[in-house]
Design a binder for these strands. Sequence first.
DNA 1: GGCTAACATGAAAGGTGATTCATGTTTCGC
DNA 2: GCGAAACATGAATCACCTTTCATGTTAGCC
Lengths: 211, 211
Amino acid sequence: MSLEETTPRPAPRTPRGARTRARLLQAAEDVFATVGYPDASIVRITELAGVALGTFYVHFTGKKEIFDEVVRDLSRRVRQAMSAASSAAPDRLQAEREGFRAFFAFTAEHPALYRIIRQAEFVSPEVMRTHYDDICSGYAAGLDAAMGRGEIRGLDPEVAAWALMGAGELIGMRWVLWEREGRIPEPVFEQLMALIEGALAPTPTTDGERT
Amino acid sequence: MSLEETTPRPAPRTPRGARTRARLLQAAEDVFATVGYPDASIVRITELAGVALGTFYVHFTGKKEIFDEVVRDLSRRVRQAMSAASSAAPDRLQAEREGFRAFFAFTAEHPALYRIIRQAEFVSPEVMRTHYDDICSGYAAGLDAAMGRGEIRGLDPEVAAWALMGAGELIGMRWVLWEREGRIPEPVFEQLMALIEGALAPTPTTDGERT
DNA sequence: GGCTAACATGAAAGGTGATTCATGTTTCGC
DNA sequence: GCGAAACATGAATCACCTTTCATGTTAGCC
């Protein structure tokens, strides 16, 4: 049942249709984020969106399709935020700082991201994988370039990207999502940066000849 | 509905009861891990366990209760595996190696851990938090002690613990769960260790006078 | 070996929620 | 302004699931 493929609904052809679809997406994001996928019913989504139950099926084939769409949307937005922030940095370490700052800021403003991505594991493993893969490939490319410039030590960019991404994810969960303040405390941020700096810094003692 | 408290069922008083309960727990673990919480029905669990539907309610008050129990059980086991592995290590770096090895090995053998913990976010946020907090406090204590012995640089053990935990989590997801091989490739493991080493190593350049 | 509490059973009650569809309403090109 | 396509509606259908309960069965204890 959860593995079936369905042909997606065609995109809306009029402004009205587009508006309704957007309203449904926004409502779905809210509902998924607050009550979770299991308890998120189509009725709830349509009620929040202010449209009739049947309207939902004009725009989406079912719960999974709209979920996927929500995930893709959030993923796109967070990646865009991160790359926009880090692209202007003069060097890699600065890029790390700005990238992480943007990530934590996005998390603070859209807690839905975490809450939704974590559920995607079952609802839709493919979209979840794509999300991480996408973030990662951008990240790894940045690391690779920096390595070429000798700014960081020689290491496998992919492994490093996943590891750092994981560090950011849990730190964000712990200090942004779980703390009332809703934003990362500066000392925690600095600590994280210190760790990343240490992990990436060119080692004076050993050469970078690891695989 | 998902926030209600119910008085837990009393523990079984006979070997037979204990056996049935254990069978249900094991079945629940499998079902939650394969089809996910939303699609996991009590019927499915009891069928897999080979008991009648009604029997379930002799031992558990509902789906959430057995889910919580499964999470607590997995959490206990993985923590035990990790601490057993790392406790014999001569120094901190060695302890890191053994701890992570044990973690990846456990992940390979019980993919259910990941799959289930990630769902806990909504089903049961408290248990999920407890799981991470528990792992973390042990980890942080180890780092703190090592810091006292001067084996690693001065840093906030809690932040470091969460960051490293996150790194391990995503690396495990990517290379243990998502890869056919089902165990972490040695080069990836070494890369991760190199990163951790860099992150924790006492810095020759700066002193450890950060918070 | 018989008594009782503990345990197991599965049919049935009662809900919930996803999805369909026949029917209206709006919008847009002409 | 008109006709057709796009869109919106919500009552009705249907599938499935949780939970209860009255009734059997088992096992520990004397």
